[in-house]
Simulated scan of single mutants.
Amino acid sequence: NPASLGICTPQQLRAQSGCEGLRCIALQLAVTDAATINAYDDVLSVYDSAEALREKIMRPGDGAPREERQEPLSLREREIVVCIVKGMTNKQIADTLCISTHTVITHRRNIVAKLQIHSPAGLTIYAIVNKLVDLSEIRDTITEI
Rank of each mutant, 00 (worst) to 15 (best):
E68V: 14
V81I: 15
L73H: 03
P10Y: 02
E67Q: 13
Q70P: 02
R54Q: 15
C19F: 09
A30Y: 15
G63F: 04
N90K: 13
L44W: 03
L53Q: 07
A35K: 12
R59P: 08
P65M: 10
Q28R: 14
N90H: 09
G87K: 08
R54T: 10
A26F: 00
L22H: 11
V31R: 04
D62S: 04
R76Q: 11
R78S: 08
Q70W: 07
R69M: 06
G61E: 08
L27E: 03
L13C: 13
Y40M: 00
Y40T: 11
D42F: 08
Y47G: 15
E51V: 11
G21H: 05
K91R: 13
M88D: 10
A15D: 15
C19V: 13
R76I: 05
A30E: 15
C19D: 13
D48G: 00
E77P: 06
I25Y: 06
Y47E: 13
V43E: 04
C19M: 13
R76H: 04
C83I: 01
Q11G: 14
P72N: 08
T36A: 08
S17N: 09
Y40N: 03
Y47D: 14
R69T: 03
A94E: 04
K91A: 14
T36S: 10
Q28M: 03
L13Y: 11
R54W: 11
Q12R: 09
Q16N: 12
R23Q: 06
R23A: 10
L13M: 11
A52T: 13
A34K: 11
L53G: 01
D48W: 11
S74T: 15
G18F: 05
D42M: 03
I93M: 06
S17E: 03
C19Q: 14
Y40I: 06
K91M: 15
V31I: 10
G63A: 04
Y40W: 06
E77C: 04
T9E: 08
L29E: 08
V43A: 04
M88W: 14
P72T: 12
I37F: 00
Q11M: 08
D48P: 09
Q16A: 12
G63P: 03
Q28N: 05
L73G: 07
E67M: 11
M58F: 07
D42Q: 02
T36P: 00
A35Y: 10
E51S: 12
V82D: 10
A94N: 01
V43R: 07
C19A: 11
P72S: 05
L75M: 11
V85F: 02
A39D: 13
Q16W: 14
C24L: 07
V81F: 06
S74R: 10
V85K: 00
Q92P: 04
D62G: 09
T32W: 04
S45P: 00
